[in-house]
């Protein structure tokens, strides 16, 4: 299984890190959608500890049915977010399509020795998650017209937030492995990290950071199809101990848009990582579990 982004060594002291991601709108506001798509695309660069330099827009757009104004708002959102990351949009490409899609191809750089992959987790490491779970469930509730203004605001903010500060914090604190949480959900990306690292891991439900109302909406059936696909694919590697409600299982498998970083860190440097994350403005970094030891990528979920 691959890492979050492709890496190409240019010189002994310099490697390119490249990634691409695009998707259909998750929110109605085109400017916010642009921001979210850009934060999501940049996230793969941050997950490897790299610094983004340049980006190219990828656009599919029904220019006959949606106005040019909508497209320019999407692009403005993307451009602003890329600028916030200290990178520049060099250009892009667009095609006609019935359904709008937007994303970016991003290029970053890193010293090859400083690369943080998803296969370096060690027995005894703690697992830290930097953003709350539940974006897929809240987007489903939003589509169903059930989301209140406070929850909608929290959803937009978390999806548009860059993982830049989290990446800086994990570099400082000597992270052993990292991945960003996106479409395969917490368990899908954790499974990749555990399998690639040759370890078994455990997660505690009682530690999961969640978006407001996410658990309630999961219990009300606001569960996206992707969560069911993730579960089907991952269930053979997951063992449940204690009581894990159906809603909590849905949250663990919920596909995330622009999710947080999942960072493995040696136990003795956990406090350093958490304070660095808080300094970076990440309000609820959580230790959600730990690496048990060598293994085949098995995940144990401890219930509540």
């Amino acid at each position: 299984m691959p890492d979050d982004a492709g890496v190409f060594r240019l010189r002994p002291d310099l490697a390119l890190v490249q990634t691409v991601d695009f998707f259909t709108p998750v929110v109605d506001d085109p400017y916010l959608f642009g921001q979210v798509a850009a934060a999501n695309a940049l996230s793969d660069i941050y997950a490897m500890g790299a610094t983004p330099l340049t980006a190219l827009n990828l656009v599919a757009f029904p220019s006959c049915t949606l106005g040019a104004e909508v497209l320019s708002e999407i692009l403005r959102g993307g451009c602003d977010k890329v600028a916030e990351a200290g990178a520049v949009v060099l250009g892009g490409h667009s095609v006609e399509d019935d359904e709008p899609k937007y994303g970016l191809a991003v290029t970053g750089v890193i010293h090859p020795d400083e690369l943080i992959t998803n296969h370096g987790a060690q027995g005894g490491d703690l697992l830290v998650l930097t953003k709350p779970l539940g974006t897929g469930i809240l987007v489903t509730a939003l589509k169903g017209g059930l989301l209140g203004p406070a929850e909608e605001k929290a959803l937009g903010e978390t999806m548009a937030a860059l993982n830049e500060g989290a990446a800086r914090a994990m570099r400082e604190a000597g992270a052993t492995a990292c991945t960003d949480i996106t479409g395969f959900g917490l368990l899908g990306h954790l499974r990749e990290m555990a399998f690639n690292s040759g370890v078994d891991v455990e997660i505690e439900v009682a530690a999961l950071p969640l978006l407001p109302q996410a658990r309630e909406f999961a219990a009300q059936g606001m569960v996206p199809a992707g969560a069911y696909r993730n579960r089907e694919h991952l269930a053979p590697y997951v063992e449940i101990v204690g009581e894990v409600t159906a809603a909590d299982q849905d949250l663990l498998y919920d596909p995330q848009t622009s999710g947080g970083l999942l960072i493995a860190v040696p136990e003795e440097r956990k406090d350093e990582l958490l304070s660095a994350l808080r300094r970076e403005g990440i309000s609820r970094p959580r230790v959600i579990g730990r690496v048990i030891g060598s293994g085949s990528g098995k995940i144990t979920i401890r219930g509540i």
């Binding site: 219990a219 569960v223 069911y228 159906a246």
Partner: peptide, 15 residues
């Protein structure tokens, strides 16, 4: 006519 819709409706009704 989809299992996702079935499971989500069952969850909602059970809740």
């Amino acid at each position: 006519d989809s299992e996702v819709a079935r499971d989500n409706i069952v969850k909602m009704a059970t809740a």
